[in-house]
Computed example of a mutant assay.
Amino acid sequence: MAIWLTLCGVIVFVAYLLGSFPTGYIAVKQLKGIDIREVGSGSTGATNVLRTLGKRAGAFVLVLDSLKGVLAITLVYLLFNFAISQNFIPPTIDAKTWQPWLITLAGLAAILGHSKSIFLGFTGGKSVAISLGILLAMNWQVGLATASVFAVVVAISRIVSLSSIAGAMAVSIFMLLLHQPLPYVLFGIAGGLYVIFRHRSNIERIIAGTEAKLGQNLAKEIDQTA
């Protein structure tokens, strides 16, 4: 039992470290020699990279941040396969019951790591791209449905923050509609609320009608969403 609990603790911590890996910060630092936290919104997320370095760099960081989420959840599956093969899971534990809970904890840890990176003094992005990767690894239908909501809203409004908030609100609905296990539903609620919380300043600007839209100059987007 002790070995199993230790493995669970390690995988959650590794998921946090994966989320903490500062892809946006490194990309901008290497390509432009500046600290992205001092540009635009100050976020290390893909949208701020898009505004700083352009579409290719923004897309590159978006993909890498999403992959961090996929990898965090994949590690849980690998852990279970390893633990089962080595008989580390006590016979009194139902692995099928534990797995969704550990996936949820690893997902939340990765989200926290992305926004509060240990490598950047606990600063970071707004956990949108990594959340998408986690959702795709949890259930690809939920992930694609959430991405579709984001895409539709951004196509209509041209406001990334509004699209992120809409996607965050839709996650729990899709989890319920697709009959996902309780831990995943709780992940949708907790993760969605956290992403919305990270966008609280954007919400104020949306209400005030001053939130930046895609295509505007970086100089006009200081302190805007990322």
Score class of each variant (00 low, 15 high):
residue 91 P to D: 13
residue 44 T to R: 09
residue 145 A to T: 00
residue 189 I to F: 06
residue 41 S to I: 14
residue 223 D to G: 12
residue 42 G to W: 13
residue 73 I to F: 12
residue 77 Y to M: 11
residue 180 Q to M: 05
residue 134 I to N: 03
residue 6 T to Q: 14
residue 8 C to G: 09
residue 12 V to C: 15
residue 1 M to E: 14
residue 143 G to E: 04
residue 130 I to P: 00
residue 16 Y to L: 11
residue 86 Q to I: 08
residue 19 G to Y: 04
residue 209 G to V: 05
residue 6 T to E: 14
residue 84 I to F: 05
residue 185 V to Q: 04
residue 13 F to A: 15
residue 54 G to I: 15
residue 16 Y to Q: 10
residue 26 I to N: 08
residue 110 A to Y: 04
residue 84 I to M: 06
residue 226 A to Y: 09
residue 130 I to D: 01
residue 130 I to H: 01
residue 81 N to Q: 06
residue 35 D to Y: 10
residue 57 A to L: 14
residue 157 S to R: 01
residue 37 R to V: 09
residue 179 H to L: 15
residue 108 L to G: 02
residue 162 L to F: 05
residue 213 K to T: 02
residue 153 V to D: 01
residue 29 K to I: 10
residue 53 L to V: 15
residue 91 P to F: 09
residue 149 V to C: 00
residue 106 A to Y: 08
residue 117 S to E: 13
residue 5 L to T: 13
residue 42 G to D: 11
residue 99 Q to R: 10
residue 57 A to W: 15
residue 55 K to F: 15
residue 75 L to R: 04
residue 94 D to Y: 10
residue 16 Y to E: 10
residue 218 L to W: 08
residue 223 D to E: 11
residue 184 Y to A: 00
residue 70 V to S: 01
residue 122 F to Y: 13
residue 39 V to N: 03
residue 142 V to S: 03
residue 82 F to T: 11
residue 179 H to M: 15
residue 89 I to N: 10
residue 120 L to N: 10
residue 220 K to C: 08
residue 121 G to H: 13
residue 51 R to M: 15
residue 5 L to N: 13
residue 96 K to V: 07
residue 199 H to K: 08
residue 2 A to P: 06
residue 138 M to C: 05
residue 196 I to W: 06
residue 106 A to H: 05
residue 102 L to P: 02
residue 144 L to V: 02
residue 107 G to Y: 00
residue 150 F to L: 02
residue 171 V to T: 00
residue 138 M to L: 06
residue 80 F to H: 01
residue 158 R to L: 07
residue 41 S to Y: 11
residue 185 V to R: 02
residue 146 T to M: 01
residue 195 V to Y: 03
residue 181 P to I: 15
residue 84 I to E: 05
residue 174 F to E: 02
residue 78 L to E: 07
residue 208 A to P: 08
residue 54 G to C: 15
residue 212 A to K: 10
residue 191 G to Y: 01
residue 194 Y to D: 06
residue 76 V to A: 01
residue 93 I to Q: 12
residue 145 A to M: 04
residue 105 L to P: 07
residue 23 T to L: 12
residue 112 L to P: 14
residue 147 A to K: 03
